[in-house]
């Protein structure tokens, strides 16, 4: 089983990101589970959501305490207490950031990839919503699921222009990070 924790801020599509990832797993005939940890729901507040992907039915409903990977939608959240807690040793962190991956890896003590998802999203969607770009980058890094499964999950949730723009965004995002570098960090 692979467990992810996605950190973001209210309004960044954190829950949708988790739902899309689990839906992509289900599209691949695997089992997926995703749920948010709701807090005070308001724009800008730190929020988190959890994803599990497995080859057998997932029955546990506990929050993901020891994630294999973290996706962090806002670099400033790295300074919020608890964001890095429980990350499995060797587990990777994907951060929406324009800083250098090497510097962040050294700073955080975990393999970290910095990826400027906001600018890329702005270019494709015309809106600074980084969630789908980060998902695509994560799939590219970890190869947990093929990118096509994310496209299929997006196609179920969005239509028309929004879908088209997101599909072009994830194609682009997947190319922006080194493919497969986190294959060995997986725990499944």
């Amino acid at each position: 089983m692979i467990e992810l924790r996605i950190h973001g801020r209210g309004g960044q599509g954190n829950v949708v990101a988790a739902y899309l990832m689990a839906a992509a797993a289900i599209k691949e005939q695997r089992y997926g589970q995703a749920f948010p940890a709701f807090g005070a729901e308001r724009r800008g507040a730190p929020v988190q959501a959890f994803v599990r992907i497995a080859d057998a039915p997932i029955r546990r409903r506990s929050q993901v305490a020891e994630p294999d990977f973290l996706i962090v939608q806002d670099q400033a959240l790295l300074h919020v207490p608890g964001v890095l807690v429980g990350l499995r040793s060797g587990g990777g962190i994907l951060v929406n950031s324009v800083d250098s991956s090497e510097q962040l890896t050294e700073q955080l003590g975990h393999p970290t990839i910095a990826f400027g998802a906001t600018a890329l999203a702005q270019r494709h969607l015309g809106r600074p919503v980084p969630n789908t770009a980060l998902l695509a980058a994560f799939l590219s890094l970890s190869e947990v699921l093929p990118l096509g499964s994310l496209a299929a999950a997006l196609s179920e949730r969005f239509k028309g222009k929004v879908l088209e723009k997101n599909l072009s965004l994830i194609e682009d995002a997947a190319q922006q990070v080194p493919g497969g570098v986190w294959r060995e960090n997986r725990n499944d």
Partner: peptide, 10 residues
């Protein structure tokens, strides 16, 4: 609530 209502699954 949430644990089931807001969980996406197969």
């Amino acid at each position: 609530g949430f644990t089931l209502t807001h969980t996406l699954e197969s």
